[in-house]
Amino acid sequence: MTFFDAIAQHAFLQHALVGGVLASITCGIVGSFVVVRRIGYLAGGIAHAVLGGMGIAFFLGKAPLSGALISALLAAVLISFVTRRGHQQEDTIISALWAVGMATGILFIAKTPGYNVDLMSYLFGNVLMISHQDLWLIAGLDGCIVLFSLLFFKQLLALCYDPEFATLRGIHVDTLNTLLLCMVAITVVILIQIVGLILVIALLTLPAATARLYAATLLGMMFLATLIGLGITTGGLALSYTYNLPTGATMALLSGLCYLLAIMLPSRQFRTTQG
């Protein structure tokens, strides 16, 4: 049975496909902000700290997704405060959050009674297990991110381009930066469903980094990154179904391959217009 026949028949594949489409939109938008603002490391910190919240929620018998959302937002606010005034130990604190979050999650999951298979699916994702309910939540979070980005696009652009100038124009740079990191946190939670928290950074940064090589504006970069994300999630799903490969890893490898090809191809937008 080919991938396309399978989609028509299996609801879980349809869910996975829709999940991938929704994730591509946030990846395109938020990933572009992450790449131009160079906060990939911060996003990595948030992604790994999330396991702490998921583990605690799991231990308490609550929905891991709600634990993920709360811990991601907490980590985002914490990191935004640490980075606010150029703290000297900024990278150490983010590394600590990264490791402590993961360790907390692993401990709580280990101490949860009963057999648990979920740890692997948190770490590496399990897009084939996405439920109808998950999709509605992801769609809602997607909507929040699109709406916020539309409403505050010019302020976010100024923040990413030249925070000092943005401050001088009366923009509350610190608050806006916290909100941007909260968008990253929400995106991380969405992506954990698709590729798992270890590979979040691949889908968050690589499509946007690829798009950046061709786009002349941030908006163009977001559209292109979304399209690339669509290609990667759909292609990754098809490949993993056809050849029986882990979905998250396949998508992450496709992202890497895509970026590698893009930087090796000679005709790039800012190369050709330079000089």
């Binding site: 010019k154 652009l157 381009y161 943005a166 124009r169 923009i171 504006t217 941030l218 970069m221 800012f270």
Partner: peptide
Amino acid sequence: DSAFPISVRDTVLQGRL
């Protein structure tokens, strides 16, 4: 960042913030 993807017009418009 001199490699930021932004047009001249969009840069100048930031003065209107």
